[in-house]
């Protein structure tokens, strides 16, 4: 097990280095960084001086090594547009994005799994058919449209929930701000989370349904019935647990994309998260932020994948053996 984790960690570092390389390449090839820093009137001498002080005359490999070394200590340089450290900018906005992503993922799981189980067990009931129809809508409607529709119905027409922003936030520790502790913060979370999580929810529901139908046909479910176990024990203890391995895989991968693609939802709801920051950075060619964001997202994907692999072993004892042997 330990060997497996170590090997996966080494692989993860490889992935992160590759992403860092791409991120770093942006500095070199998307315009001259000096031009982004100095004003148009700067003389050639000043430019050369800055170039030298930034180490831009060093060989490419040395510069890359320096960038990786700084990134490892969470130093991603100074943002061109804000003149502030990128780490600080991202750190300020990260709690907003992570909280939104977390609530969306929990919403997708808590609603999606029971709906999937229900539609599998009561295939012919009208409610199951309704869920199926709704899930088609969820899968096919683009996120921004769902967001706009929700704003129109619940914020504009009914006036129940706020249409933008995070509401009041409470500061926890040095760098974390949370919207969980105030009513307005919680209310502000509802619409964006539904918008961001709806696609994942329908995906999970359809996945759980398909897997449940598959598992319910197996011999061990038949044998469980023949042993006189209660319907509840069979459906939830035996059948649902066997559907969890694919569900964990998909949920893990989707959690990564929820964070990465929160950009659209954050834009629609003016959510002060990393996604909005990233969009601004793209508009202003603020390469340090783009590069750091790229690395951060890659890091999250790698961590989530590792966690998913470890979770498999918890759910399915057969995989523990392969993991150990591998």
């Amino acid at each position: 097990m330990l060997a497996f984790i170590i090997r996966r960690l080494v692989q993860s570092i490889g992935v992160l280095l590759a992403v860092a390389f791409i991120a770093f390449a942006m500095f070199r090839f998307v315009g001259d960084p000096v031009n982004q820093i100095v004003s148009i009137e700067a003389s050639a001498e000043e430019r050369a001086q800055i170039r030298e002080s930034l180490g831009l005359n060093d060989p490419f490999v040395v510069q890359f090594a320096r960038y990786v070394g700084r990134a490892a200590t969470l130093d991603f340089g100074i943002s061109y547009q804000f003149r502030q450290p990128v780490t600080k900018l991202l750190g300020e906005r990260m709690p907003a994005t992570l909280e939104l992503a977390l609530v969306s993922a929990v919403f997708a799981l808590v609603v999606g799994i029971p709906m999937g189980v229900y539609t599998a067990l009561r295939r012919d009931s009208w409610l199951a058919k309704l869920f199926q129809a709704v899930s088609l809508v969820g899968v096919s409607l683009p996120t921004f449209l769902i967001g706009i529709l929700l704003i129109y119905v619940f914020a504009v027409t009914l006036g129940w929930l706020p249409s933008f922003g995070r509401g009041e936030v409470v500061r926890l520790g040095d760098w974390w701000t949370t919207g969980f502790l105030t009513t307005s913060g919680l209310r502000a979370l509802i619409l964006p989370s539904i918008t961001l999580g709806l696609f994942q929810m329908t995906l999970i529901m359809r996945l759980v349904r398909a897997e449940m139908l598959e598992v319910l046909r197996t011999d061990y479910i038949k044998f469980a019935r023949a042993r006189g176990l209660t319907r509840r024990a069979i459906n939830f203890g035996h059948a649902l647990k066997n559907t969890l391995v694919p569900v964990i895989t998909i949920t893990g991968l989707q959690l990564g994309s929820i964070i990465a693609f929160a950009i659209i939802t954050e834009t629609v709801f003016q959510w002060p998260g990393m996604g909005v920051l990233f969009l601004q950075a793209v508009q202003n060619v603020d390469i340090p932020i783009m590069a750091a964001y790229l690395l951060l997202i890659a890091f999250l994907f790698v961590v989530i994948n590792l966690a998913v692999d470890l979770l498999y072993a918890v759910v399915d004892p057969r995989l523990k053996v392969t993991v150990r042997a591998a």
Binding site: D219, Y220, F223, A226, R227, G228, H238, N242, V315
Partner: peptide, 25 residues
């Protein structure tokens, strides 16, 4: 009928490789 199954009538299936739930001891 569920109470009869397993309690008063037991059943042995054909394929022992698939009759047991792989996730439980």
């Amino acid at each position: 009928m569920r109470r009869v199954r397993g309690k008063r009538i037991g059943m042995i299936f054909q394929d022992p490789l698939t009759s047991l739930n792989p996730l439980y001891t």
